[in-house]
Design a protein around this nucleic acid. Structure first.
Lengths: 162, 162
DNA sequence: ATAAAAACGATAACCATTCTCAGTTTAAAA
DNA sequence: TTTTAAACTGAGAATGGTTATCGTTTTTAT
């Protein structure tokens, strides 16, 4: 997977964007933190560890550029900040997430769940689908387990007091 | 449908929120502009026509309150503003939208498209689904037609010049 | 009527993001 | 290589949607 960076570099070069240390460090950070849904601020702080002189504006500019190059996806969970995900190589342009309303963690779900739905939309609404986002909000298995545990210990306590 | 307002009023009263003219005017505006995906600013300007003395902060406060009461849904299309949709009565808590990347209009699509997908998610990921959002980004039928028309006239022009 | 609690309008504060600008770096041409 | 123009950068100001503050007004219960 080491040539993933190389491929991104090549892509920049082909479109006559310059290969700066700041951009390289940013890509590096994104690669090292896949699945983490980093905000621009997050990326900024992480890049600063490698390249302390970098400015926040440059991080924003680089993320915007990578988004246009379709290297990262800019996504929004409605919490007031944009998050930037490295796109899986060869992956279609989709976003399927499970957002836990208890602990806030965001998990991914498999692609292709929506192929059928997409067909229906294209046909019934004459809408040419280029991209989609599907986000489920609910309670993840970890929080369900936690809640169950709390319930049980509350029950035990109630037995003692009664 | 006139008692829709009444029901919302009742709901406010039951939860001991006060029934102020500002809140009433805001609900009225939302009812008169369903399907429009109004931003807070939009609502503010429309309410101002009925009640010119209202403040922007009050509109935000009211929309926030209505969102908590599950009367409106606060949604985000990634364009930097939150939009507020009156929830259909009896409708499940879902958001299905078609966002046109050409003209920016947002259309609704029918509910129930995802019942099957939701089941899979609950089973395979042990994730208790409370809500979901599905947004397709693409080109609406209007813009498809417009593009086709432009193409044709360009062709005609090219025939003349050649 | 009166007092406590809620709600209000105006506007300041906040905060994520974008813009500006003067100085620096890059990469292609000389 | 050196040169040069365009691209890129960091710092911080500006922007814009949203939230917080505060003194005043309105509502509801006593």
């Amino acid at each position: 997977m080491e040539n993933r960076v190389e491929r991104i570099k090549k892509q920049l070069h082909e479109q006559s964007y310059k290969l700066t240390p700041q951009r390289e460090a940013t890509v590096q950070v994104l690669l090292e933190n896949e699945e983490d849904h980093l905000s621009a601020e997050d990326v900024y702080l992480l890049v600063k560890e490698k390249a302390p002189e970098i400015g926040l504006a440059t991080v924003y500019r680089t993320l915007e550029l990578l988004n246009e190059l379709e290297v990262v996806d800019k996504i929004n969970f409605g919490d007031g900040v944009s998050r930037y995900d490295l796109r899986k190589e060869g992956a279609s342009h989709s976003h399927h997430h499970l957002v836990c309303i208890e602990c806030g963690t965001v998990d991914e779900i498999q692609e292709d769940l929506l192929a059928e739905v997409e067909k229906i939309v294209e046909k019934d609404y004459q809408f040419k689908v280029k991209d989609h986002r599907l986000t489920f909000h609910g309670v993840c298995h970890r929080c369900q387990a936690k809640a169950k545990k709390n319930e049980e210990s509350a029950e035990a306590a109630s037995l003692h007091t009664n």
